[in-house]
């Protein structure tokens, strides 16, 4: 009897097969229409959008890297340019300073030369004037001597007096 009962475990009831097929078909249809289609569609869309976003992000990153590299290059160039300008400016300044120094030196030399020439001329003038004054004084002394009919002693005295009256200078 138990064997007969046990056989019911593996029995294939046609009624159950019929109902089961019907139910499963219905389940398949309902799930397909109301569940799987929207869910799978949504998942696909989301995956595509995530994929697209990732690609966009990658592209943006690459672009950003490129821009950064570009900026870096521009900055380096600008730095080099600045240094070049600075160097040039420094050189220019040095050059100008040297030039100025040279000019000043020349000017000073000129001024010195002028001053020396001036002094020389002034000295010459003074000597000439002195000579003239000495000549005048000699003439005046000669006149005085001549006027006071002079003897030899007197003349000598007079000459001595005159020589004494002269300022004690070499020239």
């Amino acid at each position: 009897m138990n064997l007969i009962l046990a056989a019911s475990l593996v029995s294939l009831e046609p009624g159950l097969i019929f109902w089961k097929s019907l139910t499963f078909l219905l389940l398949l249809f309902l799930l397909y229409k109301f569940a799987w289609k929207p869910i799978l569609q949504a998942l696909k869309e989301r995956e595509e959008s995530i994929d697209a976003s990732l690609r966009r992000a990658e592209r943006a990153l690459a672009e950003a890297r490129q821009i950064q590299a570009e900026n870096e290059r521009i900055r380096r160039e600008a730095e080099q340019e600045a240094q070049r300008i600075l160097r040039e400016a420094r050189e220019e300044a040095e050059r100008l300073r040297q030039e100025e120094l040279q000019k000043t030196r020349v000017q000073i030399q000129q001024m010195q030369a002028q001053a020396r020439a001036e002094i020389e001329r002034e000295k010459q003038g003074a000597l000439d004037e002195l000579r003239a004054v000495v000549a005048d004084l000699a003439i005046q002394a000669a006149e005085k001597i001549l006027r006071e009919s002079l003897d030899a002693d007197r003349q000598r005295r007079l000459v001595e007096q005159f020589l004494e009256s002269l300022p004690a200078s070499k020239n």
Binding site: T23, F24, L26, L27, L30, L31, F34, A35, W36, K37, P38, I39, Q41, A42, L43, E45, R46, S49
Partner: peptide, 25 residues
């Protein structure tokens, strides 16, 4: 049948969420 109804009861509301856009974007 109970299993089938449970599957329907679970996945149709889930599908509704996707339809509303939760999980879609």
């Amino acid at each position: 049948l109970i299993a089938a109804l449970l599957v329907l009861a679970l996945f149709i509301p889930v599908a509704q969420r996707y339809r509303k856009g939760i999980g879609r974007t």
